[in-house]
Design a binder for these strands. Structure first.
Lengths: 245, 245
DNA sequence: ACGTTGTGTTCACTATTAGAACACACCTTC
DNA sequence: GAAGGTGTGTTCTAATAGTGAACACAACGT
């Protein structure tokens, strides 16, 4: 983690209005901490933000008071456990509806199934469940991110966006795949997010919510993609019905 | 969710020094949002914080720019998906080491096993895995919190704390149980965190980290607690060895 | 003993934030 | 269909809250 003095306070320029400098800096500390795979000193943190050490110090103390950051005996800081507790509240109603469905689908299909939502221009995995008779270890851990422009879940999500909202790295080939996905109602991918695995995803559109998708991953020779998609579509319909999509 | 004007800006008075007001208010928005089981309007949020609406507005805009908050078409706000991505960075090295062990233990024991860490005076579940042949649905979802003073994991964690750091609601009976847990190396509970379930937990002490515990839950008639504890102790030892406890 | 690298504290200055007032959009209600 | 309600988003000035330098102290290595 090298220092990046040039980073602006707001993550991206949101078109309108100024952002709160202090809050933005505090959040960036959390982002820096998540990127760094190890505890950071206050000096390192201050350097990464491009602020004076005493500024970082007070921000960190505040984060610590809220439990979002913890300190080692040496004084180094790391993300705090309460952040995980906060994150449990993200789309909890969607998770509550989706988890039983994911579990059922995973067991019936014998595949790892997961719930993905769109965040800005990235896919975030919110929940994933492995089948009872899992062969390999978990593929997509909750919290995993990757660009919308790769993988079956990304395509399923792009079907829900007007082309004007697509990220700039969408190729003509990808646009074609998305169009195909719109027509048949599901998307697939090979070796995109995870090497040597196939994936199938179906769109999950909910009223007043960011675009989402249900997905399943499986070994190439395993299974007919269309039947996997059919099973996922069933689950998606159930979730939609429950949440009034 | 009623408004609580009286809540101070810092979560708890941390003995020393002032906290950053703006950052603290921003975090409290996240906390309020996690508590409320539904999207909140800006007015509701401002009321809950006891600040002027325009203040809440700017804070929310900043949170939104960082993806920690999302907005409905109506303008109401809810927690954003990127919060889940951030939370994936919490103790990721511990989680990476613990997950395979939890999985192995869960399958061998036929029980849901989970990893719990101490946060202030509460236990937070960081990861949980169900056995392949799970009978019931998941007991402890990641992010779940409960007081240290209840449940087997809490006792296993209290064994790692000097009595002076114990919360005030520790009864004499509980102190006795903790002492017993210290002696034999593991703790148990019945119907405490989850009605009609037994739990076994072993302490997991790591260098420079908050106290943690590995735990398993099972039906009362199922199994000998000591053998469950022995299996968990094996996993704890492996994790300790990997992380240099 | 010295320099280095870290944390924690204090303080004067000013940039940042606070909060009121205003403009506008969208409902429902009468 | 006009009035009233409820909500978002914008602009403005005062002064509060934050900024960053300098200082004190502790731990560790050379």
């Amino acid at each position: 983690m090298t220092t990046n003095q040039s980073t602006p306070d707001a993550a991206e320029a949101p078109a309108t209005g100024p952002a709160s400098q202090t809050l933005s800096r505090g959040i960036r500390i959390l982002e820096v901490l998540a990127d760094a795979r190890r505890p950071l000193t206050i000096d390192e943190t201050a350097g990464a933000l491009g602020v004076h050490r005493s500024v970082a110090y007070r921000l960190i103390r505040t984060l610590e008071a809220h439990g979002l950051v913890e300190r080692e005996p040496t004084g180094a800081i790391r993300l705090g456990a309460r952040l995980a507790a906060l994150a449990a509240g993200v789309a909890h109603d969607l998770q509550a509806e989706a988890l039983p469905e994911l579990t059922a689908a995973a067991n019936e299909l014998g595949m790892t199934c997961f719930l993905v939502v769109l965040d800005h221009e990235e896919c975030v995995t919110l929940a994933s469940v492995e089948p009872r008779h899992a062969v390999a270890t978990v593929a997509q851990r909750p919290g995993t991110r990757h660009p919308v422009s790769v993988g079956a879940p990304g395509k399923a999500i792009l079907t829900q966006l007007p082309a004007s909202d697509w990220p700039s790295d969408v190729t003509a080939a990808l646009a074609g795949e998305v169009h195909e996905a719109v027509v048949r109602g599901w998307a697939e991918s090979q070796n995109e997010v995870i090497p040597s695995l196939h994936a199938v995803a179906v769109p999950l559109v909910l009223r007043g919510r960011a675009p989402a998708a249900l997905a399943a991953v499986y070994l190439p020779t395993d299974r007919d993609a269309a039947s996997v998609a059919a099973r996922l579509l069933d689950s998606a319909a159930v979730i939609r019905a429950a949440l009034g999509g």
